[in-house]
Structures are given as structure tokens and as C-alpha cells.
Design a protein around this nucleic acid. Structure first.
Ligand SMILES: [Mn+2]
Ligand SMILES: [Mn+2]
Ligand SMILES: [Zn+2]
Ligand SMILES: [Zn+2]
Lengths: 138, 138
DNA sequence: ACTTGACTTAGACATTGTCCATTGTAGGAT
DNA sequence: ATCCTACAATGGACAATGTCTAAGTCAAGT
């Protein structure tokens, strides 16, 4: 994620402690935090960071295409730093655990023209739901 | 949707004006309203119906499997009366229009075991995004 | 018609997200 | 090294969405 900070500096971003902390919190694989979860973790590193700044920074990262908003959760939006490798999601219906997954083929090709209603279709989001090994054991 | 009311009566539902109106509002094809949209339309027919009753009734219909919650909108949940025919959704990114669509094949089959991380996968939700003919013309 | 438990209501409360006026500061200019 | 200033952060008000409860109402069985 340090290359992310480099890229953003190149795009004219002013580098602040708050933005650095948000980027650090988002670092990793299979990371899909809500805005308030990002805030809670950011506060652990920088206690005075505000909710507004976290929302602003996440919004900017989304606008820049560096982070994706995903709607796997029917309550809050989740923020996904894995924006440069196309993928989909597998969600545990009980505990909410989320994994990045890569289905075979291109799901876009499975929608015939007769089912497109004149739309120009540019993107597809696939959410698999089930039960994770932990929840199955319990 | 009148058979819906019959089914619910059979399941021991007390039939009230409020529940009848919510069911009527949900009647139709390609209907994917938010709770507050359902409330607004219900008020047109039964002015004193409360928000709480609309939320309660929608929640009950979801529990009974008669209505689906869909997450095509990243803000509010949407309620889909087309619960008995499996389908997916095509959403206009600009105006939010939603159509029911039926992709070819079973998307569940496209997730290899090596990408299931030990989950038992039971369901898949596919959201296509694009631009509708109306928005493309403008 | 009575009775009763299920249903509805209004509004408080909770969560998630947005906006704004004020204060602070990163980074270029001198 | 210090100054400037446009950009960024803050706290808190506000908005949108969703949940809960206490009190009143009524559908439906008797
Ligand atoms: Mn992801
Ligand atoms: Mn639908
Ligand atoms: Zn689980
Ligand atoms: Zn449109």
C-alpha cells in the first residue's frame, strides 16, 4: 500500500497523517471494512482523527479508483482496497466473513442481448453467499 | 398478488387494511421499491398507515419468503415481490432503473472448489450495471 | 356482541452518511 | 528558516434509513 501513497502524491494529494493512517488501515488482503470500522482502527493509531475525515478520505479514494465500494452488506457500504484486480465476493451469511473470489469465465458474457433491454452493460458484481467453515463447525 | 393474500391467510395471517395495501403496492413486474417508497405509495391509498407498519410488514414478507431484499442500491434496501422465480438484476448507474434478468447457465457452477475456502455456498446474487436507453439518449 | 391476542401507531432512539463553519497545516514561495 | 495560502481536518448539526416500545385498536373466533 506504500505504492498507493506514492501514486496519490503524484496525483497532487497533500500527504497528511490522517490520510496515511486510513491507507494503512486498508492495507491487506480480503479487507472489506465499513467506514466506521475504518474509523475505529484509525483512532487506534491517531486518536484525534474525525469521522468526517475518514468518510472524506474513503470517498476520495473511491473517486480516484484506488478503493471500491462493495454492497455485500445490506447495511453499511464496505471499502475494498483490492481495486486493481477484478474479483467477486463470497460472504458467510452468519458471521459476515468476506473472501475475494475469482469465478471462471466472464459473467458479463452470460447475459444475452435479449435480456439487456437496450442497456449498455459495463460491469457486473457477483456475491456468493453461504456458510464459512467456522460457522459450520459451531 | 391476490394469491399472495390467500397464501398468507392460510398461514394464519390476520388480514388488515395495512397489509392489503402493502401487498397491492408491491404487485407488478420489475418492482424494486425501498421501504420509504412503499410507504409513500401506501399512504396514497391509506393515509394513516405508519412507517413502522410498513417496515414490519416488509420484514414479515421477507421472513415468509414471499418478498426478497435486494442490495442493488448502496443506500436503502429494496423489496422485490418476484421471489418465486430465480433471477438477477440489471441496474442503470445513472437513473437507478432496475430490470429483472435471467443470465444463461448457473453462476454457482462458475465458482471452483479451490475458490470456496471451505464455505458451503448456497446462493448467488448477480448485479449487472450499465446505462439504460433513456439515459443514453440524454 | 364479547373477548383477546395480534396488530398498528407515534415517536423516541440507533446507525449510517452528509454538510458546513471554523481551525489547522503541508508544501511551495521568498 | 519563515511566511502564505489553498487545501485539509475537526466537531457538531443535520439527513436518511432502520429499530424498538408503550399504548391504543381491531380481526376473527366464540
Ligand atoms: Mn474484495
Ligand atoms: Mn427483481
Ligand atoms: Zn461464518
Ligand atoms: Zn437510466
Amino acid at each position: 500500500m506504500s505504492d498507493l501513497l506514492e501514486r496519490l502524491r503524484g496525483r497532487g494529494w497533500r500527504m497528511t497523517a490522517q490520510r496515511r493512517v486510513v491507507a494503512e488501515v486498508l492495507d491487506g488482503e480480503h479487507v472489506h471494512l465499513t467506514a466506521d470500522e475504518v474509523h475505529a482502527r484509525a483512532v487506534g493509531r491517531l486518536p484525534e482523527i474525525s469521522r468526517a475525515t475518514v468518510y472524506n478520505t474513503l470517498g476520495e479514494l473511491v473517486s480516484l479508483g484506488e478503493v471500491l465500494e462493495v454492497a455485500t452488506d445490506k447495511r453499511a457500504k464496505r471499502y475494498d482496497p483490492n481495486a486493481h484486480q477484478p474479483h467477486h465476493h463470497l460472504v458467510c451469511a452468519q458471521c459476515g466473513a468476506i473472501r475475494d473470489v475469482h469465478p471462471i469465465g466472464n459473467p458479463l458474457a452470460d447475459l444475452p442481448d435479449s435480456e439487456r433491454f437496450g442497456f449498455t452493460v459495463s460491469d457486473v458484481e457477483v456475491t456468493y453467499r453461504g456458510t464459512c467453515p467456522n460457522c459450520a463447525a459451531a
